[in-house]
């Protein structure tokens, strides 16, 4: 067995995560934010490793 199997399995894992999520929470492109946050006037709202809930 070579590393190719492992690499394909890793990609497969990512595809499974996205596919299962697509079924439960389909994205809505019409609710998308502007292309770039910088200069958009919108407050940052993404999840981040350092963020602590208030």
């Amino acid at each position: 067995m070579s590393r190719r199997i492992v690499a394909i399995a890793a990609l497969g894992l990512a595809v499974i995560v996205v596919a299962l999520d697509m079924a439960a929470s389909p994205p809505n492109p019409y609710a998308a934010p502007s292309l770039i946050a910088f200069g958009s006037g919108q407050a940052q709202s993404g999840g981040f490793c350092g963020a602590l809930p208030n």
Binding site: I36, A37, F38, S45, G46, G47, F48, C49
Partner: peptide, 16 residues
């Protein structure tokens, strides 16, 4: 940082 408005991170996504 410019696109997302936040710095590069890894582990939040994995837990999510």
């Amino acid at each position: 940082l410019l696109v997302a408005g936040q710095p590069w991170g890894v582990v939040y996504g994995l837990g999510l």
